[in-house]
Simulated scan of single mutants.
Amino acid sequence: MSGHNKWSTIKHKKGAADAKRGKMFSKLIKEITIAARMGGGDPEGNPRLRTAVLAARGANMPKDNVERAIKRGTGEIEGANYEEINYEGYGPGGVAVLLEALTDNKNRTVAEIRHIFDKYNGNLGESGCVAWMFDKKGIIEVGAQGLSEDEVMELALEHGAQDVKQDGDVFEISSDPGDFETVRKAVEEKGWKIELAEITMIPQNTIKLEGKKAEQMLKMMDALDDHDDLQRVFANFDISEEDMLKASA
């Protein structure tokens, strides 16, 4: 499991996700809005919108909120005009950090992000400085209970997936982004429980952090995750679960 995913899992176990539900809803609404704007308001014909709507359902977002966000995206009702921007930089110890943002004020957003990097001994870099260190992948996590690795592997590879591995109580199926929808639909048709389904950025290698640098990195991740304009944060750190739990205590 990548450092960022491990960090997110530990935060969730400690209840941090529930405490930040309002921020989560805000980010999901932005994603639904821009997905509808770019690809239309029909989730069945717009894979990005479908993924966002499913994430909203998984977060128990009220249906009315989802429908309003779609209508803002299609122009049926007025709303903020968000722009997609990626930011890249380095955290403590040279950790690569890749950010996906949706903002209606680029100047404000970049200034605030630069401040976070500076505060935690990192630096915001130029476009392209770290993106090459990550691979774009489709990831689907399926509840492992009652399933064997062989049957998950057979279905996944038959529908274009690249790999299957067990991580605790889930099977993680990875694929090229272009095969993501095909694999997900095959899993859904089987009736298997999907714990997570997203197109994400996987680091090609990781940087191990300990002590003060690990603490700074986790504080930086918290600050970036809390920023209203940042949709997703990817980083290639490797911090032990023990150190993560200490830092989040």
Score class of each variant (00 low, 15 high):
residue 94 G to V: 04
residue 85 I to W: 14
residue 231 Q to L: 15
residue 107 N to P: 06
residue 221 M to W: 07
residue 246 K to F: 03
residue 142 V to K: 06
residue 116 I to Q: 01
residue 136 K to C: 01
residue 166 Q to E: 12
residue 222 D to T: 05
residue 51 T to Q: 04
residue 221 M to F: 13
residue 141 E to H: 12
residue 46 N to A: 05
residue 246 K to V: 03
residue 42 D to N: 15
residue 111 A to D: 11
residue 126 E to L: 06
residue 69 A to M: 15
residue 57 R to A: 05
residue 138 G to K: 10
residue 150 D to Y: 07
residue 82 Y to A: 14
residue 43 P to G: 04
residue 150 D to S: 14
residue 209 L to V: 00
residue 41 G to E: 00
residue 104 D to Y: 09
residue 170 V to D: 06
residue 46 N to S: 07
residue 115 H to V: 01
residue 235 A to N: 06
residue 12 H to M: 11
residue 187 V to F: 09
residue 107 N to V: 12
residue 75 G to S: 12
residue 57 R to L: 08
residue 134 F to I: 00
residue 93 G to V: 01
residue 196 L to N: 15
residue 171 F to K: 11
residue 33 T to I: 13
residue 26 S to T: 08
residue 68 R to P: 02
residue 225 D to N: 10
residue 12 H to D: 15
residue 76 E to H: 09
residue 62 P to V: 06
residue 237 F to S: 01
residue 128 G to P: 00
residue 160 G to N: 12
residue 131 A to Q: 09
residue 196 L to C: 07
residue 123 N to P: 00
residue 156 A to Y: 09
residue 39 G to P: 06
residue 64 D to L: 11
residue 28 L to G: 05
residue 75 G to C: 13
residue 95 V to D: 01
residue 30 K to H: 08
residue 132 W to M: 05
residue 89 G to V: 01
residue 222 D to L: 02
residue 210 E to Y: 10
residue 109 T to G: 05
residue 77 I to M: 02
residue 69 A to G: 14
residue 8 S to Q: 15
residue 79 G to R: 14
residue 161 A to H: 13
residue 224 L to G: 05
residue 183 V to K: 10
residue 137 K to A: 09
residue 183 V to S: 11
residue 157 L to W: 11
residue 225 D to Y: 07
residue 49 L to K: 06
residue 187 V to I: 15
residue 89 G to E: 07
residue 6 K to H: 06
residue 243 D to G: 02
residue 167 D to R: 13
residue 51 T to L: 00
residue 80 A to M: 14
residue 184 R to T: 09
residue 186 A to W: 11
residue 114 R to S: 09
residue 164 V to D: 14
residue 227 H to N: 06
residue 11 K to Y: 01
residue 63 K to V: 13
residue 10 I to Q: 13
residue 223 A to E: 15
residue 53 V to Q: 03
residue 46 N to T: 04
residue 152 V to F: 04
residue 151 E to G: 07
residue 192 W to D: 10
residue 13 K to E: 15
residue 100 E to N: 15
residue 242 E to M: 08
residue 156 A to D: 12
residue 87 Y to K: 07
residue 58 G to H: 10
residue 104 D to W: 14
residue 216 Q to N: 01
residue 3 G to S: 02
residue 170 V to A: 07
residue 193 K to E: 12
residue 150 D to A: 14
residue 48 R to I: 03
residue 160 G to Y: 07
residue 113 I to V: 14
residue 38 M to L: 13
residue 214 A to E: 00
residue 35 A to Q: 04
residue 164 V to L: 13
residue 153 M to Y: 09
residue 118 D to V: 01
residue 33 T to A: 03
residue 140 I to Q: 06
residue 186 A to Q: 15
residue 86 N to S: 14
residue 137 K to C: 08
